[in-house]
Each structure stands twice: as structure tokens, then as C-alpha cells.
Design a protein around this nucleic acid. Structure first.
Lengths: 230, 230
DNA sequence: GGACACATGTAACGGGTTACATGATTTC
DNA sequence: GAAATCATGTAACCCGTTACATGTGTCC
């Protein structure tokens, strides 16, 4: 039995809410232009989710046939739209990221300079690839051919976020690569003095004195709601 | 049976690798200064992970007693260090984020202006809270009292990333709030023209013409390795 | 000496993943 | 007409989660 809707549920609902005959396959394909980058999930999760939502009456699934092969095309129901509306009134989950590369940076000194450089190069390339995609989306809107062209005023906010964030990641990767290239090795020898200078220049205010302020437990931090929703 | 190590395994290994008598509790507490923000996981996952790693011989667990209550203190083994070293040679997972707020921005027009404003305010406050924490860490290093003070040259890279990213998020939130405040309502009426202007100003290059370039399947994108490791 | 927070976990569910399967369409 | 690719899913494992449990110092 389906208990509660998850954020993934709402992501699917939200996408189906845009007028279009959504086959699950197309839903999955187009996700890249909707929520793949802000709510990445495996394809099979989407297939399962639409079935759940249909079973709950939030989506309306229409069986079709291509040859003797079946497929389902979904549209949102009024009940589904209402669920979205109610969701908007609940607290958001905070921004969270998975950035494996940073763990590698942390342990970099037990490996080789080439390894960490390679890791950072991968991250930079990933960022560039995503930026290239962002540029494509921008161009689509400028040409007026975007699928959600009529929602340009909303999409602009999202694309702005996406591009800003990726530019930040790319810039960090580049200055970090440059910094590491300037090192002879990965040992701390003589590097910590300069590091303090770098710390001093970081664009964030410091408290007068460091007080051991306890941090909220992680559950609180990651998801604001405690009622079982993920 | 433990099959493969996950990134979470390596995150725990990496933390235990810094010389310290690590009780699981302290491991969990200190995670905020290590990998909580780049690899957020529930506390119970850490408890399970140390047991796995100990069973595999990558960690050494020493039973202690406080009153009649048992606890385990861990340290890394040479085998564990070797596992970390080997991991460094494998491909990284790309940067990924969970940003629920963006889904809400997308469906904002079906809700109220107050709802989306509230959502964005929450995101901004979260970002500020994290930045405050970043400022604290910076200050610890400047005062020379950080736990990993001798690793300042590495930690500086991480804190730089953290602060840059959060500043980007905060700045986006603020300009987006300002934009939305300037609207009378959430309807598209008369907003799309201005949106195109915003698109034009986005700091990313656009391709000559938009070609329908197929995007790599999501699995590829999120995790580079296909051998079952998460 | 009761309440409350800190310390140290375990249990169990389910969401997310990888792996697989098979029909339709295009390519050459 | 074989091979590759696209389209449309299902199965099953396991990581990550939430919920719970219980001992131990500390406050008043």
C-alpha cells in the first residue's frame, strides 16, 4: 500500500501537470529538461511512481498499443493538481548535494598528485558538459522553440540557478587545479601558511570567537518534515 | 554479506583515517566538519557502516565500557588505508544535488505568491545558516584551533568550495525573491518578454543552433562506474 | 530524585538502484 | 535480414531512512 507521497512523487506529478500526452518513456526522456538536475532519480523509479500515482487517482493512465505492445499515457487529474497545491504549503527540504570528489580531495595526500588532478578534471568536464546543456536550453528559449516557452518567466529562474551553480563549480575546479599544480607534492610541507592566507580571503564573515555551537541533528537539517515523507 | 564498498564506506574510512580515537558517536558528531555537507547520510547508516568495515578488516574496532554500557572505538587498518588508495584511482561520481525548492518554483503558478516566497525564504535561511557555519570553520583555522589544523592546505580547498557554492545559492535566492516580489501575481501575463531579456543575460555561451543532441542516460551521468558500486 | 539531554546503538520499511527482458524500429 | 538502437517496462537487492530502545551523566 502506498503510504505517503515523496518528493519524487511530486516531481513526477509536476511534470505530468504540463499539458502533453506523457508516456512514461517520454516522461523519463524529458526529465532532463525538467527535474533531472535538481532531483535526479533512476528511470525505474519513475516507472514505479506513475503506477503508484495512477493507483491513487492522482494520475489518469490510458492504455495504448503500438503493434501488439502496450504502453500507458498519463495525464494529471484534478485530485493530482490539488495534491500539488497542498504540497506547496508544506515546508521544503533544504538544498543538499552529493559531491564525492570532495571526499577524495580530503584523502588526496595518501594518493598521488596525478590522481587528484584527474578527479578534478573529471569534475570540471562534468560541469562543462552540464553548462553546455544549459546553454542549449537558453538558446531554445531565445529562439522561442522551448517546450515550455509560455512558462519562460518561471523557467528563467531555474536556468539562472542551474547556470550560476555550475559556473561556481567550474570556477572552483579551475582555481583548485591551478593551486594543486603549483605544488611540488601533496605533503603539507610549507603549504599551511599560504593556506591561512586563502582562508582569510574567503568571502564569508567570521564570528568574533568560535563558540562550540551544537549543530542541529542531520535529520532536521536534510528534511524538514518528520512525518515520514522523503 | 558485504559485497562492495560504497561512497559512504569511503567517507567513513576517510574520516576514521584521521588520527583520533573514533567512537561511532563522535564520528557522527564530527561528520559535520568532515563530509556531512558533501555526503549527507543518516546517522544509523554510519553505525552500520563501521560494523561492515570492521567485519571486512578495514577498520579495527576496540570494545570499551562506560559503566556497564559498551561502546566501540575504531581506528583504520593498513588494509583500510590501502582500500582508500585504490579507490582514488577509480572514476568519480559527478556532482549531484537534491533541490526540492526548484520543483516548487516550477509549479508555483498553481499556488500562491506567498507560498513560493515562503519556500524561497526557507532556502535562503538554510543557506545563511550553512554560511554561518562555514564562517565558524574559517575562524577556527585562522585561530589555529581546528581539529585538522595540520591539513589546513587541504581543508582550505573544501571550505572554499562550500562557501562559494552557498554564496551562489544565497545570491540566487535573493534575486529571485526580488523578481517575484516585483510581480503582481504568478500568471505569465506580460512576464515572458522580460524573461527573454533575463535569458539573454545568463552567463553561458549558446550554440549556434539548437540541435537535438541526445543526452547520456542518467545512470551514466550520475555514477560513472557501472560495476554495482554506489 | 525526576527530568532532561547526551551517548550508543538496533529494527524494519521502502525508495533508489542495477540488472534484465522483450517488442518495435531503423540502419546498412 | 542481421545488428543496433529505441521504447517500455519488471525484478530484486540493498542503502538510506525513520522509529524506537535503553543506559548515563547533569541540572535544579
Amino acid at each position: 500500500m502506498a503510504k505517503q507521497l515523496t518528493t519524487t512523487s511530486y516531481a513526477v506529478l509536476a511534470q505530468v501537470a504540463v499539458p502533453h500526452p506523457w508516456s512514461t518513456y517520454e516522461l523519463v526522456q524529458q526529465r532532463v529538461r525538467y527535474f533531472r538536475y535538481v532531483w535526479p532519480r533512476a528511470e525505474s523509479a519513475i516507472y514505479r511512481e506513475v503506477k503508484r500515482l495512477a493507483a491513487m487517482g492522482l494520475l489518469d493512465g490510458r492504455k495504448e498499443h503500438v503493434g501488439k505492445r502496450a504502453r500507458t499515457v498519463y495525464s494529471i487529474t484534478e485530485k493530482g493538481r490539488e495534491a500539488l497545491r497542498e504540497w506547496l504549503a508544506t515546508p521544503v527540504s533544504p538544498f543538499a548535494m552529493d559531491f564525492e570528489a570532495m571526499i577524495r580531495v580530503f584523502v588526496a595526500p595518501i594518493g598521488t598528485k596525478e590522481q587528484i588532478t584527474s578527479t578534478l578534471n573529471q569534475v570540471r568536464d562534468d560541469a562543462r558538459e552540464m553548462l553546455r546543456f544549459g546553454g542549449e536550453v537558453k538558446q531554445e528559449f531565445l529562439e522561442g522553440i522551448a517546450v515550455t516557452q509560455d512558462q519562460a518567466y518561471i523557467r528563467a529562474l531555474a536556468v539562472d540557478f542551474f547556470i550560476s551553480l555550475l559556473n561556481t563549480v567550474e570556477a572552483w575546479t579551475e582555481r583548485t587545479l591551478a593551486e594543486i599544480e603549483s605544488w611540488d607534492d601533496l605533503s603539507p610541507d610549507g603549504k599551511n601558511e599560504r593556506a591561512l592566507e586563502k582562508f582569510r580571503e574567503l568571502p564569508v564573515p567570521t564570528p568574533e570567537s568560535v563558540e562550540r555551537t551544537p549543530v542541529a541533528p542531520r535529520t532536521q537539517l536534510r528534511r524538514r518534515r518528520l512525518d515520514g515523507r522523503v
